[in-house]
Design a protein around this nucleic acid. Sequence first.
RNA 1: GGCUGGGUGGCAGAACACCGUAUGCAGCGGUUUGCAAAGCCGCCUAUGUUGGUUCGAAUCCAACCCCAGCCUCCA
Length: 463
Amino acid sequence: MLKIYNSLKRQKETFKPIEPGKVRMYVCGMTVYDLCHIGHARVMVVFDMIARHLRNTGFEVEYVRNITDIDDKIINRANENNESITDLTERFITAMNEDSNALGVVPPDVEPKATEHMDQIIEMITSLIDKKHAYVGKNKDVYFDVSSFESYGELSGKNTEELRAGERVEVQEDKDDPLDFVLWKSAKADEPSWESPWGKGRPGWHIECSAMSTYCLGNHFDIHGGGQDLQFPHHENEIAQSVCSTGEKFANVWIHNGFVRVDEEKMSKSLGNFFTVREVLKEYQPEVIRFFILSSHYRSPLNYSTDNLEEAKSALSGLYTSLRDTKDAENIEPNKDYVEEFNSYMDDDFSTPKAISVLHELAKELNRCTDKSSKETIEFAATLKYFGSVLGLLQDDPQAFLQAKMGSSDDELGEVEIQKFIDDRSAAKTAKDYAKADEIRDHLVSLGISLEDSPQGTIWRRN
RNA sequence: GGCUGGGUGGCAGAACACCGUAUGCAGCGGUUUGCAAAGCCGCCUAUGUUGGUUCGAAUCCAACCCCAGCCUCCA
């Protein structure tokens, strides 16, 4: 029985899909004006893990993750770069897809773009105006009337009075109420714009998600997710817009993932303390990043540091090591007891740290098996790989993982050279010239290569 | 200031009243090895503070201290 922490209720609740056996999930994706950093990677990996687990436990999943390809930041960045908007957004969409593929993220079923859903956006704004939930301001911008929606603030635990009292809300002449937010911005000169009943303009940020989610998944769907920072105002505003325009309930369950932190601070563009995915990929294999993300619970803060990345690397290497000598077990059923245990953790609000502990237990079982071709060994190996597949891990050839270069840098010793050193050392060993053999091994260690002797010969791995 | 969430061993990270203080990384001892490495066996160290409830609390309650986040664009 799947339990999910619902941000809307601030508690875990048993998940009940609207339509039995089917889950419709919408996640707020990226605004494509720059490269993805580890914070973005977390969203992609976490919701990928959720989709995988849902599918794995028998749900049919329709997963939608949008792309925001028009907004102030994009316009500004394009101007700075002297680049067209579409050139800029296409460039960063490509980059995002590269990063997401590297991290083993299965692409969402639909990736709607704001610019391709203007009709739905305009339609929704129109209905909000018709229903008196929105108005055209003095400056021709269209605003949502927050006072017209009674349960405003439910998701973020805020109430409108407190928000109004807040000193940080700037008073804007064009709005009736400082809390009102923009649905449609009238176009300034030289800005990209679309025709609308209110003149040329472009959508506000919140409305696109309301329009695209209901368009792709229907007015009422199961799960809506995104980073914790979107809870207010973005998701709050989405609820207001969607409920007021459709008259139906919007999303049943709200899932918000925690932040990535650097030195106890949120990783963010404005603080300048972010690391891009491709930057980290230069030092670590993509799967290490994925393992690092999944090793903490999705709602907890995740502290980014080289120590933690190194730990993830060691732990993952241990798992691969246990799989190294096992036979490929394609059609073997995973062990039922372990499956039950694993799923019970995943069903408990996607507790990946607990689930990963099961992988370690299996690795230990595997390492204890002396006969690597026994039925038991094969079953454990198949089970471990199966769990790996649910988490998007352990699908590489173990030896290939252990021998892979650390990152994308080229200054590491190549395989041919390494093998030559190993051959020389073996010759020295045969001649009982251990001093020379050790010298070669020490040399390799200093280059980040460690050797392991076995009756079958010497194998190597990168540290 | 208001509102959320949180403070567990050297580090990371579970458990959320009993029958197990997981799991990993690091460290230490043993085994193994020409010596190593990997593996295996074993060991080490923690529940922010002060009270309360209870047969029993990391787990519930209260106060306090500290941290992060949101209240403005942000995954």
